[in-house]
Structures are given as C-alpha cells and as structure tokens.
Design a protein around this nucleic acid. Sequence first.
DNA 1: TTTGATACTTACCGTATGGTAGGTTGTCAA
DNA 2: TTGACAACCTACCATACGGTAAGTATCAAA
Lengths: 203, 203
Amino acid sequence: MANDTREQFLDTAESLFSERGFYGVSIAAIANQLGLTKQALLHHFGSKEKLYGEVLKRISTQFAALESATTRVETDPADLLKAYLLKLHAPFARGPAPTRLLMREVLDNKRRADTAGTWYLKPFLDSLTKMLKAIPNWQKASDVDAFAMVYQLLGAINYYGISAPTLTGIFGAETYAEIDQAFPVQMEHLIDAAIAAGPRSTE
Amino acid sequence: MANDTREQFLDTAESLFSERGFYGVSIAAIANQLGLTKQALLHHFGSKEKLYGEVLKRISTQFAALESATTRVETDPADLLKAYLLKLHAPFARGPAPTRLLMREVLDNKRRADTAGTWYLKPFLDSLTKMLKAIPNWQKASDVDAFAMVYQLLGAINYYGISAPTLTGIFGAETYAEIDQAFPVQMEHLIDAAIAAGPRSTE
DNA sequence: TTTGATACTTACCGTATGGTAGGTTGTCAA
DNA sequence: TTGACAACCTACCATACGGTAAGTATCAAA
C-alpha cells in the first residue's frame, strides 16, 4: 500500500528527527529502519528537506485538531486554558516526539531560511493569550503581559516534555517515575497560581 | 598568543554550536571564522568531540561561579531563589548561547553516550530544589514536589531564553522588544505566585 | 648556532551524505 | 496483450566531513 509506506516514512522520520535533529539523521538511516533504501524515500518525498517539511506539517495539523477539540469541550475560560495546556504535556498521546521536534525547530529557527516551523505557531500563541485574557481577573491585562505569562507556562510544559532522558540519567529510573507522577499535579498547581495571581502591569 | 587563540576557538565554537548544533557545524567552519584552517583547531583540541566537551565544561564552570556568587549576596531564601532564577534569564551577561547550547544538550542527551552535559546539572538542580524548600511555606513539601515546581520555573526561563529568533519572526522586531521588556516582570510575577502558592501535595 | 617546542600550514585519505540516472517488477485499466 | 504508471532497486557521482601525515615558520633556551 503506497499511502501506508508514506505514513510509515513520516512516522520513522518524525521519531528520528526528534531524537537526533535534522543533520543527525541520514535519509538512508530512515529508510533502513523500514527495510527500504533511501531511493524509496526520495521517490516518495523528493528530498530530505521536503520530507522534513511534511513531518512538521503533519504535526501542526494534529496540533490544530487538538486545539479545536479542546475548545469544543471546555466552556469555562480557566478550565479551557488549563485543559489545553495540560494536553500539551503528552502531546496527542503520541509521545514526546512532536514536542522535541518543535523544540528543535525553535532552536534552529534563526538558521532555517524557510519558516516552516513558525507559521503554525502564531495562531496557536494567539489562542493561548486569548484564553488567558478571557479569564475574569486577567481581562484588564495587556496583550503583551498576558502573552508573556502564557508563554512561560508553555515553556514550563515543553521543557519538561523533552527532559525525560536527561532526568532519568540524573536521578535514575525510579526517582524519575516519581517525578513524572508528581509533575502534572505541580503543573496544574502552577497554572492555578498564575491564573489566581492575576496580571502585574509592566508599565 | 596561544591561550588567546584557544579562547577564541572556544568562543566561536560555543556560538556556532549553540546556533546550529553539533552536527550542523563543521570544524572547518569554526576555524574559517577565525581565519585559520581546521588543522589549527585540531592542533589545539585534538578532535571535534573534545572541543565540544571543553565548550560545555567552560559553560558549567561559569554556571557554578554564578551560583556561588548569588548565594553569597542573597540571604533571604525567597530572594535567593528569585535572584538566581532571574540571573539565568541573560546567563552570565554573555547572551543566549549557553542557554541554547544546554537546551540542545538536554535534547540530545538520549543519543550522546558521554554524559558531558549532564554531570553538572544534578548539583545545580539540587541547589534550586533546596532553595525552594528553604522558603517557609515550602518547608513541608516533598523533595519531588519541590523539584517539579522548580523545574517548571527553570523551563519557563530557558524556553524563553531560546525563543528570541522565533518570536521576532512571528511578531516582528517592535512587538518582540515589548515582550522582551515585559518578560522579566512577568517572570518575577510567576515566581512570586509559585512561591506564595506553597506546595500542593502529590500523594 | 643548534635544539626543541609551539603554532600553524598544505596534502591527502576514507567514509558518509544527498541526490541523479536508469533500470526492474508488479498492478491495473484499456 | 499492451501500455502506463507506481514502487521500488542498483549503480554512480560530487561534495563535505573528521582526521592523519608531514611539512614550515617563529622563537626562546642551551
């Protein structure tokens, strides 16, 4: 099945790119993992860059779907923001690969000429800011202040999302398991604290 | 001057590695930026891996110095934690390169056999956790809960620390300037909120 | 004035990489 | 039965990479 192979390529590429970065993965390595040659990959995607672009595109599509699904379910503004942020913790229930990949994209943004990893981000960030400002005691906050706060929460989540190997290496598997269990609670706790604190004006 | 060249190599390598990652930079590119050949670099450092290791080592040394300097100045536990975290915002007043590089190290930790980027991190994280637990209303928190909270704050700071190019690309230079001005205030605000909220038990 | 070390250089090598060219095989509609 | 196309393959290529080998220039100590 053609479509099947394509999808498998995207899965494998996403996983490898997220773990080793664009330059750290050869197209031959991706293809070999599926028992194919790199020419099969080039046949489907044309070039390494295009494959990478399609991986990013697929992630951003799933991202958008997650957002609209959450918006449909939650009605209270505070609950919506919390639910959305918490869902990013284990993105799409597909493991940490998307988070890692997007973090790499943020890191490499300066270098990469195309803005493939950026264009999806603006509406996403705007939504988050809007969600925070929809909460009663944040309504008088400026856009910039609300954004800065929301971006910090996003940073907290994403940073943790890529830290599993490092934290396991530092603390060992058992302690990491404890941390991983505690984290969602503490994350919700921090979000609650941020919401409850209300804005602090910059000017 | 020999030492001078070495130091220049480390500066250039730190900058380039932070922007493009280990695989994204050739030793020839580093050397060319100084008007030298890659063999000059190999003469001083032996191999690319060793150069990279020395860059990390230098950063971690500066990191430790920053910690002890802050500990020496601040006495109130809450102030100490705040001061330390805020100093990480513009690390060592040497720009975002160290933050970017360490973020890459966290991302690549799974792959890299040597734990060069990890060994320095444990005492650093232990210090942070200890700082939080020294604050009166956090004294009864478990180590894991305190760590989870502190790690989130660290994540918020580091994530923002690598986001300048991305945010500039999304919002434009003027808006980014506003954000960058607002950020430290909102960061301090979030830290205050987290401290004030006290622990929420996981069990 | 020789020795030896430091700080480089050019020349070269094996390997890996992304990509091209040109097959071969299987499927499926006309 | 044929023709066309998709889905691969082997063969090949130019380039770039990290690293080795073998110089050369400078300079200070003996």
